[in-house]
């Protein structure tokens, strides 16, 4: 098992290395000289050269790369040329909004996927099953931003039961005392139930819009796994022992069906945490996604580059966590096949 963990960690380091090289190369070949961008079109070529020298763009590539990556891991992510603030500060300010939305969306997506997969596979329910499968197709076919607009039209413009695209809280509401800077959690910590409710209402529509395509993917995966596992002979054996249908299902089908879903869950969480540029845009969500959206428009490459790298690192970390989780909970990974007698 030690070996398994070592291999996974090593693989993750490799993946991060690959991601950094890729991000580095992409930024070097993209059109637009950063020095020129920083100094503006009227700057002299001497000034551009000087700045190039100052930020090290005239150094050999490997030196540049080394500087770039050691800066990255020390948290020196550079400065946004458009407003001069440090990228670290900009991202730090906006990360809690994205993380809160991601976690909320992840939880409701998982719950909905598990619930519906169970509903459509436990016992033979052809009609429910068909409806669930149809619904999941819908999720696949609908672009998330379109769904976001649809949700806004129905629940905000027409029914007036959920807030519109006004960010994390209504205009009059004040943010709760900052602890985690996730408003729902901070509101609960501060005991401000009103604020909590307000923050939660603001999460619902973007959470749904963000989760829909992953929901479709997860529900189909879970459904297939559950169907497959519930046909396994060991389920029949468990029933043959005298176990009630649900007990046999819960004890033997569920764990075996969920195990392969861990990987998918990790991917989905990673995707959510990386933020959705479009969804945040539609809902005016003040998260990393909106920041990056603006940065792309302004060719603010320090932000974009950091964002790419951060997402890659986070993705790798989430997957590493999933792999390690396997090693802990799946006996077939934990214990070698060849037992020593």
């Amino acid at each position: 098992m030690g070996r398994v963990i070592a291999m996974r960690v090593l693989g993750s380091v490799g993946a991060v290395f690959g991601a950094t090289v890729l991000a580095f190369m992409i930024m070097r070949v993209l059109p637009g000289n950063p020095a020129r961008l920083i100094l503006g079109p009227l700057a002299t070529s001497q000034a551009v050269t000087a700045l190039n020298h100052h930020i090290g763009l005239d150094q050999p590539l490997y030196t540049q790369y080394w500087r770039y990556i050691s800066d990255f891991f020390q948290g020196n992510w550079g400065y946004s040329y458009s407003d001069g603030a440090s990228v670290r500060k900009l991202i730090g300010e906006r990360a809690p909004a994205t993380i809160e939305l991601a976690l909320f969306s992840f939880v409701i997506t998982m719950l909905a996927a598990v619930g519906l997969a169970l509903l459509s596979t436990y016992r033979h329910r052809p009609i429910t099953d068909r409806i669930v499968r149809g619904a999941s197709y819908l999720g696949f076919g609908t672009p998330p931003f379109f769904l976001a607009l649809l949700l806004l039209i129905v629940f905000f413009s027409t029914l007036h039961i959920l807030p519109g695209p006004e960010g994390r809280l209504g205009v009059q509401a004040a943010a709760p005392a900052a602890v985690t800077r996730m408003y729902t959690i901070d509101a609960l910590l501060a005991g401000e139930l009103g604020t909590f409710w307000e923050a939660l209402k603001h999460l619902i529509l973007p959470g749904l819009a963000l989760g829909i395509s992953s929901f479709s993917f997860l529900v189909r995966l879970l459904r297939a796994n559950l169907l497959e596992v519930s046909r396994e002979p060991f389920i029949t054996v468990a029933r043959g022992k005298g176990l009630r249908r649900w007990t046999a299902f819960r004890r033997h089908a569920l764990p075996n069906a969920f195990l392969p879903t861990l990987t998918a869950g990790g991917l989905v969480l990673g995707e959510f945490l990386a933020g959705s540029v479009l969804i945040e845009r539609v809902f005016n969500w003040p998260g990393v996604g909106s920041l990056v959206f603006d940065a792309i428009v302004k060719q603010d490459y320090a932000i974009v580059q950091t964002f790419i790298l951060l997402s890659a690192v986070m993705f790798v970390l989430v997957n590493l966590a999933v792999d390690l989780l396997y090693a802990v909970i799946d006996p077939r990974v934990r214990i070698p096949t060849v037992a020593t007698a």
Binding site: V4, P336, T340
Partner: peptide
């Protein structure tokens, strides 16, 4: 691979 705990 396998046979011992280090999976050599």
């Amino acid at each position: 691979r396998g046979g011992d705990r280090f999976g050599r």
